[in-house]
């Protein structure tokens, strides 16, 4: 009587379905928890007392005042548009020994402030101070 050994199945692979389940769960987890926002920080060192903010009035420093969110900044009584490259470059070149102090009036948004700081930096300004824009009105 011939021994009837059944041939072992060549392809007896484990089912892939549980694997996919796990991989999908992992994928969902990583998709939901990942963050692609490129976070950066701007240092805004605060002075201990309002009195030490007086150097702002020094001669070399230039005070720029934001009045509205209209992409214009007031310097020495004149409005300068953010897009006016040549005017900004002259301003920066004239005062580059000092600090560019940005002040802001009511209603000016944080984005406008950062936009002006960027513009000044792009035109070669070395030191831009935005901390004064956050000072309480009575300490100005």
């Amino acid at each position: 009587m011939p021994l009837n050994l059944s041939q072992p199945k060549r392809k007896n692979a484990i089912s892939l379905t549980p694997l996919i389940d796990v991989v999908f769960i992992l994928l969902l987890f990583f998709m939901l928890t990942s963050s692609f926002v490129p976070w950066r920080i701007v240092d805004t060192p605060l002075s201990m007392t309002p009195d030490t903010q007086k150097p702002v009035e020094e001669k070399d420093n230039l005070i720029l005042t934001l009045k509205q969110n209209d992409d214009q900044v007031w310097v020495e009584g004149q409005a300068v548009s953010f897009s006016d490259q040549s005017r900004l470059q002259t301003l920066v070149a004239d005062h580059n020994g000092g600090i560019f102090v940005i002040k802001a009036e009511e209603g000016v948004t944080l984005q406008t402030l950062m936009h002006l700081a960027d513009r000044l930096k792009l035109n070669g300004a070395k030191t831009v101070s935005i901390a004064n824009a956050f000072a309480m009105p009575e300490t100005k």
Binding site: V37, P38, I41, V42, S47
Partner: peptide
Amino acid sequence: RLAGLTKVSLATQL
């Protein structure tokens, strides 16, 4: 500032 802290940073995005 009243709490006496001076190291402050603002978050921005690139």
